[in-house]
Amino acid sequence: MAGIVAFLAALSLRVRALRPFGVRRTRWRWVFIGIGGGVVVWIVARLLVAGYTVIFGVPENVQATYNTAAQGGVLALILSTLFLGVLTPIGEEVLFRGVLATVLLRWGWVPGVLGSAVVFMFFHGLNGFNIAYLTAIVEGIVAAELYRRSGSIWPGVIVHVTNNAIANLLAAGAG
Rank of each mutant, 00 (worst) to 15 (best):
M1H: 09
I4V: 14
I4M: 12
V5C: 06
A6P: 04
F7E: 02
L8Q: 07
L8H: 06
A9I: 15
A9M: 12
A9S: 06
A10I: 05
A10G: 14
L11P: 04
L11G: 03
R16M: 04
L18K: 05
P20K: 09
F21R: 07
R25F: 06
T26M: 15
T26E: 14
T26A: 13
R29T: 15
R29M: 10
W30M: 12
W30R: 06
W30V: 11
V31S: 07
F32Q: 05
I35K: 00
G37E: 03
V40N: 02
V41A: 10
V44Q: 03
A45S: 15
A45P: 07
R46A: 14
L48R: 08
A50C: 02
G51N: 12
G51T: 13
Y52E: 05
G57I: 12
V58R: 14
V58M: 12
P59D: 09
E60N: 13
Q63T: 14
Q63K: 12
A64G: 07
T68N: 10
A69E: 10
A69T: 04
A69N: 11
Q71N: 07
G72V: 05
G72L: 09
G72I: 05
A76S: 15
A76Y: 02
L77Q: 07
L77I: 12
S80A: 10
F83R: 00
V86L: 15
V86K: 00
V86W: 04
L87Q: 04
L87F: 14
P89G: 03
G91M: 10
G91R: 03
V94E: 00
L95W: 15
R97F: 07
G98W: 03
L104P: 11
L105V: 08
G108P: 08
G108C: 09
V110G: 06
G112Y: 05
G115R: 06
F122Q: 04
F123A: 15
H124G: 07
N127C: 00
G128F: 09
I131H: 02
Y133I: 09
L134T: 12
T135I: 00
T135F: 02
A136G: 11
I137A: 03
G140F: 03
I141R: 00
I141N: 02
I141H: 04
A143M: 15
A144K: 01
A144G: 13
Y147M: 09
Y147I: 08
R148N: 11
S150H: 08
I153F: 05
I153R: 01
G156F: 01
V159E: 01
H160Q: 03
H160G: 01
V161A: 04
V161Q: 01
T162K: 02
T162D: 03
N163D: 12
I166S: 05
I166C: 07
I166M: 10
A167V: 13
L169S: 05
L169W: 08
L170Y: 11
L170N: 05
L170F: 15
L170Q: 11
A171N: 08
A171K: 06
G173D: 02
G175Y: 13
